[in-house]
């Protein structure tokens, strides 16, 4: 296994000035992580109540949320047909009459990426051609990660080869649960190397890590290993993106940024279905990490149904009438 620091390739169109190159594993730092769960839960519980965005601000923030969405379909029955529909929605996430009404027609609102299994990558790449919207592939034996390491590397390489610009890997939960931080570090280093120019999002599957301290430590190790993003969940665990978990990960990102100067992105995924919850996540980003983490280069929302609710809220803002989902184009 190699631990050398990789060169820093960039991907045009993603707006990333500089990728996190990673740093040598610093176990002292990892073990210093302290997370007090009740205190974190208290902060997470009051955060959405401490800030409120209303009227035009709410509409603008919801548009911003759309631009952070990794529009996702990860189902056993995915076919080229429904993936092409998803990609069409990704290009035009909001009805144009609504965008015009909001004065947002020229903002070039699209989602941040489309996220699919490897088998659908080429379909999505084709469907999104010319849009500038990258395709993300979940990988490394998603969602459980219980496949041989070499197959994980092969899967990454295959997806990158098929045109995926972003790879969402899953970490080996066992490495975290057993405190095998060096093994986790090496594993993620190799995933990063296999990604090449594609961006690496590391899914911690926080619902299976047992403690928030594990979440904090795993976040640090993944960033040290060169993750471009750290991501909460696969969407397949019984508990997915929660604000307390997000808070711990955001604080880890802030710590890492403070210590190394490298900015790592954050992606909550799973269970984010309402416009209100997307605002909560944006508020968490703004409060804990600052305005630099409100855009797609450092913030993503992994979601599928969320978009429809945001559309309904935008229409309500525009018309003052409560909206119906069927009046918005489905995926």
């Amino acid at each position: 296994m190699t631990t050398t620091i990789l060169p820093v390739p960039t991907v045009p169109g993603l707006g990333l000035e500089e990728r996190n190159p990673g740093i040598p594993l610093d176990l002292g730092w990892v073990r210093e992580v302290r997370v007090n769960r009740p205190a974190v839960e208290r902060r997470a519980a009051t955060l959405p109540a401490r800030r409120s965005v209303k009227r035009e601000w709410q509409a603008a923030w919801l548009l911003r949320a759309i631009t952070a969405i990794d529009l996702t379909t990860l189902a056993g029955d995915d076919t080229p047909g429904n993936v092409r529909r998803l990609c069409a929605k990704a290009r035009r996430p909001v009805r144009s009459d609504i965008l015009e009404g909001l004065g947002a027609a020229d903002l070039g609102i699209t989602v941040a990426a489309v996220c699919v299994y490897h088998n659908l990558v080429s379909t999505a790449v084709e469907a999104l051609a010319g849009s500038g919207i990258p395709v993300a592939a979940v990988s490394t034996g998603f969602p459980a990660g219980q496949i041989p390491h070499r197959l994980k590397l092969a899967e990454i390489e295959a997806s990158v080869g098929a045109g995926a610009a972003e790879i969402d890997i899953v970490v080996s939960r066992a490495r975290v649960l057993r405190g095998e931080w060096r093994d986790l570090y090496e594993e993620v280093r190799e995933f990063r190397a296999a990604c090449g120019p594609a961006h690496l999002k590391t899914i911690l599957a926080t619902g299976e890590l047992g403690t928030l301290r594990n979440v904090g430590m795993a976040s640090l190790v993944c960033m040290m290993a060169g993750a471009d993003f750290i991501k909460t969940s696969t969407g397949k665990e019984s508990v997915n993106a929660t604000l307390p978990v997000g808070l711990v990960m955001a604080r880890a990102i802030r710590d890492y940024h403070r210590q190394t100067g490298h900015a790592v992105g954050f992606k909550p995924a799973g269970g984010i279905r309402t416009a209100k919850s997307s605002l909560d996540w944006l508020i968490l980003m703004k409060e804990e990490l600052g305005d630099g983490w409100l855009r797609a280069d450092r913030f993503r929302l992994g979601a599928s149904g969320l978009l429809t609710d945001i559309e309904r809220q935008l229409e309500h803002h525009l018309t003052g009438r409560y909206a119906a989902a069927h009046r918005h184009p489905m995926v």
């Binding site: 800030r51 409120s52 965005v53 209303k54 009227r55 035009e56 601000w57 509409a59 603008a60 923030w61 548009l63 911003r64 909001l102 004065g103 947002a104 020229d106 903002l107 944006l282 703004k286 305005d291 409100l294």
Partner: peptide, 14 residues
Amino acid sequence: QIAEIFETMTYGPA
């Protein structure tokens, strides 16, 4: 304007 807030991401009055 919404377009402006979209860039500045301020909170605004509530």
